[in-house]
Design a protein around this nucleic acid. Sequence first.
DNA 1: GTCTATATTGCGATAGAC
DNA 2: GTCTATCGCAATATAGAC
Lengths: 196, 196
Amino acid sequence: MSDGDCRDNLIASSLPLFAAKGLNGVSVRELAAAAGVNLSMISYYFGGKEGLYAAVLTDQFAILGKLDELVQRETDTLRKFELYVRATVTRYRKNPYLLRFYTSELTNPTASFETIIKPAIKNVVQTLLDAFADALSHEDFRADLDPADTVLALAGMINFYFLLEPATAELVDHSPERDEELVRHIMDIFTRGVLK
Amino acid sequence: MSDGDCRDNLIASSLPLFAAKGLNGVSVRELAAAAGVNLSMISYYFGGKEGLYAAVLTDQFAILGKLDELVQRETDTLRKFELYVRATVTRYRKNPYLLRFYTSELTNPTASFETIIKPAIKNVVQTLLDAFADALSHEDFRADLDPADTVLALAGMINFYFLLEPATAELVDHSPERDEELVRHIMDIFTRGVLK
DNA sequence: GTCTATATTGCGATAGAC
DNA sequence: GTCTATCGCAATATAGAC
């Protein structure tokens, strides 16, 4: 195995294992075997299992395009929110393990929560709050809405859809072919509501 | 310690530990110490750590009132959805560990996922789908909405609000005093949307 | 940089006394 | 029903050869 392959192999093949079982659910032996690498390499390159986990997490978040820049560049206020929803769907499709790390860290936080996950989430929420303030100043939205409740509601609609998939796959069609329709429905409810 | 106390103590004091760290994040020694009980009692009463975990989970879900009956008994279609949102808030306030088990199992499923969590989630989603069909037949809702997208959107708004709390506590006021306002805002967006 | 071999610790579980 | 003591194993990590 040539130089550096070891490190990259470990990160790549640890990703699905950490995502599926969590930090404490996998052993270094399992991780090394999946990478086809000697288990001592984990300590050598990452200083231990937690170091590898942090590297996998850092890697996941580095891949992500800057959602906030994308949203901020858009001028039409309502389209900012649509852009957020659409970009979130694209992210989760391109990166099927990302949401698992988010929710796993939210529920059973490790040391990486404060350093990686929490700042990332706060950043997105703040971007949405800014977009909301923007929308209010342009008088696009009703003035009686609470900013936080509103943006968390939108974020919840799209994120929860993906989170529930393992439980509702037999009840609801979660296939990527329906993504465009999903985005349309969510934006429709967000803007106009469900009533006639 | 009198008869039966051991068992109850273990379930009660394991609840926050399992919720915070997950099944693999706690040891039997830690669980026994928290309950003030000998560690051999875990095997004696529950057949092992996983048995105790399953008992804690079963206990959590047994406490819950029947959400589906509550919703089905309501006649006004829109109020069914409001009842769901309100009952969900009440649940999570009364039972601060419940959502953690839901999301932990969705993200890093154990053996309990298929037996306990998945049926519980499917049951709630099905109840909401029935309520949606009801609303359509009464011509309360617009006919161009997708049932699944719509009910998952509503469920996402309220559930995600609680899920994000550990990350957004400094950005958003999550105090119970605002619960009533939160429910009002969510139902407002769900029914009328955000536009003027 | 990668291996083998091993040190060390902590784990879950239980046998057996009371 | 509860305890002590311990078994057997798997965990992470590393020393040292190559």
